[in-house]
């Protein structure tokens, strides 16, 4: 499932995938795969993404019945 929340949070900060990846210390490919839903990040990586984007785990990675990630 695509993770649009991560993508939207990143765009809010006016950050490219490359920039976010550089700040976290992963490849741009990894960020791309997290956003497209092709890779399930570890909890550590989820926390690092949240810290960089100024969001909580709930904001970016929680799956609601009503607001499921598309």
């Amino acid at each position: 499932m695509k993770n649009l929340k991560v993508k939207l949070a990143r765009m809010e900060k006016d950050m490219s995938q490359t920039e976010l990846a550089r700040r976290i210390g992963v490849t741009r490919q990894t960020i791309g795969m997290v956003e497209s839903g092709d890779y399930n990040p570890t909890l550590n990586l989820c926390i690092q993404i949240c810290k960089e984007l100024g969001k909580t785990l709930n904001d970016l990675f929680w799956e609601d019945n009503d607001n499921e990630m598309v």
């Binding site: 210390g25 992963v26 490849t27 490919q29 990894t30 795969m33 990586l45």
Partner: peptide, 8 residues
């Protein structure tokens, strides 16, 4: 230290 990230 590994050159690869967790996905790699």
């Amino acid at each position: 230290k590994s050159n690869l990230d967790e996905m790699q």
